[in-house]
């Protein structure tokens, strides 16, 4: 299968620059990085994509069985790197994509020079001796919110949008297009994301890693950032003075600096 169209891979920035791959988390598509990419484009070659089932990816490649497992998203990342001969590169994973980055780097360390984990959480639900910030009931509430909010998704419009990827103006006419997601896909993705436990995988990371957390983040509170930092051998922790789970939107300048500062550093 052609991974470029499957995952809507988009490459921008400096042609001969070191490669940074930006992976967005659950919710919206690669537009999440819109405010950050202009700040990286002069120095880096930037690779972005949409997870299968989201954004402008090939929906026919999605299946509930395959994408109920976070490993599959990580396998897709490895496939994109292999197919396009991109590595070794700097892999930036936001939110649940930080988990994909950890899984990808643990299985194929030679493809990744460094990892940058933006607001990561290896487990969202509280456990004995661990505070993820959420209970199982909270996750059920989220699933209900997903069911109540179709965000411009309707079956009559979807084929028009999905069948014409070469005509982005069709997409732009629809409101909330950046976060539009088939509710069935959203449900599978949300369950995989918020019910997972990848704490044990953190120790498998052997490449240099920077963890970037946000001072006030409901989804990944600071104790989770500290847990990730302590669990990944040799990692470093940077705390952005910002609010919210998506600092690439709420504090794009500081986020871009935290990414480029680590990506450009020797070794």
């Amino acid at each position: 299968m052609d991974v470029v169209s499957r995952n809507n891979v988009v490459i921008t920035g400096r042609e001969d620059g070191p490669v940074i791959m930006l992976c967005n988390g659950f919710g919206c598509d690669q537009n999440m990085w819109r405010l950050v990419t202009p700040r990286l484009a002069d120095d880096f070659k930037i690779v972005q994509f949409d997870h299968v089932g989201t954004g402008q990816s090939d929906l026919s490649a999605w299946s509930a069985e395959r994408y109920a497992s976070l490993d599959s998203y990580a396998e897709d990342i490895v496939e994109i790197c292999n197919e396009l001969a991109l590595g070794p590169l700097v892999l930036v994973g936001h939110s649940v994509s930080a988990v994909f980055a950890v899984l990808a780097a643990a299985s194929e360390p030679r493809l990744f020079e460094k990892l940058i984990l933006l607001t990561p959480s290896p487990r969202y639900i509280d456990d004995a001796g661990y505070r993820g910030g959420f209970s199982a009931e909270d996750i059920d509430e989220l699933l209900e919110s997903l069911d109540s909010n179709y965000l411009g998704w309707s079956e009559s419009l979807a084929p028009v949008v999905m069948g014409n990827p070469e005509r982005p103006e069709l997409t732009d006419e629809l409101t909330n297009s950046f976060c539009r997601l088939d509710p069935a896909v959203a449900r599978v993705f949300a369950r995989a994301t918020f019910l997972s436990d990848n704490r044990a995988d953190l120790r498998r990371v052997s490449v240099p890693t920077r963890v970037i957390e946000v001072a006030q983040d409901v989804i990944a509170p600071r104790e989770v950032g500290a847990f990730v930092h302590e669990s990944i051998p040799g990692s470093e922790l940077v705390t952005l003075d910002a609010v919210g789970h998506c600092p690439q939107l709420s504090a794009p300048e500081a986020t871009a600096e935290a990414i480029s500062g680590f990506a450009a550093r020797d070794g």
Binding site: G25, F26, G27, C28, N31, M32, R34, L35, S95, F134, S135, E137, D138, I139, D140, E141, L142, L143, E144, S145, L146, N149, L151, T175, N176, F178, C179, F194, D217, V218, I219, G244, H245, C246, L249, S250
Partner: peptide, 24 residues
């Protein structure tokens, strides 16, 4: 709590990306 999760993953990003969001 479920609403907070939805807010962080969908609502707030949409407000930043397109400067308006309605009927959530």
């Amino acid at each position: 709590m479920g609403g907070k999760l939805y807010h962080e993953t969908h609502f707030a990003p949409l407000v930043h990306l397109q400067h308006e969001v309605s009927g959530i």
